[in-house]
Structure formats: structure tokens, C-alpha cells
């Protein structure tokens, strides 16, 4: 039933109450067993989900703004992404972070063709497009065409480097600092850095 007023729609999202898939059944069974056997509590699982959902791309933006303002930090970030993020108080868990730097002739873009590996500790859960088969299969095959669909036009002299997260590394793009931002504070710079430029499908906003 649709409840519509003032030009917008109040229909609640559909419940996912179709039959459970094989893997959904498996996940529920495993979770319930772990709780029944006292390995973890239901509240610990809930708290872990809450903590993961609370992560946002703001953490990634903070890392990039720091790297733009502090050359020594930037060098440490490129040498060991995990350790440098932990310097800023970000809990990286088991994540092994590789930071790839955009320059005036190199543009980097991240994908996981096998599933949806993503630097969740810095960016939160991945967007739906990152998990889509279309993005995963096309960005390794025709990256510039995909970037254009995101509104990102690169000059011809750029090399595009695609990074496929097939195993144990996770990736963060370090975008170029936009021109005309020399007077901005680190906090203001962080606001220019959106999620999508940290995956490499866009460039930072201009101030």
C-alpha cells in the first residue's frame, strides 16, 4: 500500500521475507551455534555489527588530509599504510593497507573482482556499485570508460593503474591535493575528500 503526500512516498522498504538462501541458512545456523555454545554472546555480535556500521569514509578523509599537510606522514603512509593509520588512532584490526598515490600522470582505482574486499576500517561498508558485477568486471577491462561514467575525465597523458584486491591487502587511493587549497586547514581539506575519490572513481571536490 502506498501512502503518498507532499510529493514523496512513505512506502516502507519491502521486508526480505522470501525463502532463505543456502548461505543465509548456514550463517544463521553458525551464529546460533556459536551463541548456544557460549563462544560469543548475541550482544557481542550485535556490538561488532554496530561498530562496523559506525565506520564512515570520514576516517579515510582524515588520513588523506594529514598526508597532504605532513610530508613525513605521507611517506610513512605509503611505506606502511596500516601503521600510519594507527598513528592517527584508527583501529585497523587485521587490515594490511596499501596506499597508492595519484600524481600528475598516474591515476589509481581499486576493485575486488572476486568479491567485495574493501578497506572497511577506513571507509565503512562498501557502496552497492562497488559490489556489482558490472563494476567488478568492467573496471579491469575498460577503466577509463567506467571512470567517465562516474564523471571523471582524465587527460590522455595519464596512466591508469587498476588494483585488484584479490588476497590479503586492502587499498586506499591517496588523491592529489586540489589546486588552490594551500590556505585550507587539515579539517577543511578532509571535507573535500569523499568516499568515491578514495576508491579512485572520482577526484576530490574543489573548495
Amino acid at each position: 500500500m502506498t501512502d503518498q503526500h507532499a510529493g514523496h512516498d512513505h512506502t516502507p522498504p519491502a521486508d526480505q521475507d522470501g525463502p532463505l538462501t543456502y548461505y543465509q541458512t548456514m550463517e544463521i545456523a553458525l551464529r546460533e551455534l556459536l551463541v548456544e555454545k557460549g563462544v560469543v554472546t548475541a550482544d557481542q555480535i550485535r556490538a561488532a555489527v554496530e561498530a562496523m556500521d559506525a565506520r564512515t569514509p570520514a576516517a579515510g578523509g582524515r588520513v588523506v588530509a594529514k598526508a597532504w599537510c605532513d610530508l613525513d606522514f605521507k611517506q610513512r603512509l605509503i611505506a606502511d599504510g596500516t601503521a600510519a593509520c594507527e598513528e592517527l588512532g584508527i583501529d585497523m584490526g587485521p587490515t594490511r593497507l596499501v596506499v597508492v598515490e595519484n600524481t600528475d600522470d598516474i591515476h589509481n582505482v581499486i576493485v575486488c573482482t572476486l568479491c567485495s574486499c574493501y578497506p572497511r576500517m577506513l571507509l565503512g561498508p562498501p557502496p552497492d556499485w562497488y559490489k556489482s558485477r558490472a563494476y567488478r568486471s568492467r573496471v579491469v577491462r575498460e577503466p577509463r570508460a567506467v571512470l567517465r561514467e562516474f564523471g571523471t575525465e582524465l587527460p590522455d597523458h595519464f596512466d591508469v593503474r587498476v588494483h585488484d584486491s584479490t588476497a590479503d591487502m586492502r587499498y586506499l587511493v591517496l588523491p592529489r591535493r586540489p589546486d588552490g587549497t594551500s590556505n585550507l586547514s587539515e579539517e577543511a581539506l578532509a571535507d573535500l575528500v569523499g568516499r568515491d575519490c578514495l576508491v579512485g572513481v572520482t577526484l576530490p571536490r574543489l573548495p
Binding site: 587498476v162 588494483h163 585488484d164 584479490t166
Partner: peptide, 11 residues
């Protein structure tokens, strides 16, 4: 696309 374009894969 670009002749210098690369693809890095973990193996």
C-alpha cells in the same frame, strides 16, 4: 585505452 595502463593483482 592507454598504452601505459597497468593492472596490479595479488598472487
Amino acid at each position: 585505452e592507454g598504452g601505459g595502463d597497468t593492472l596490479d593483482v595479488e598472487i
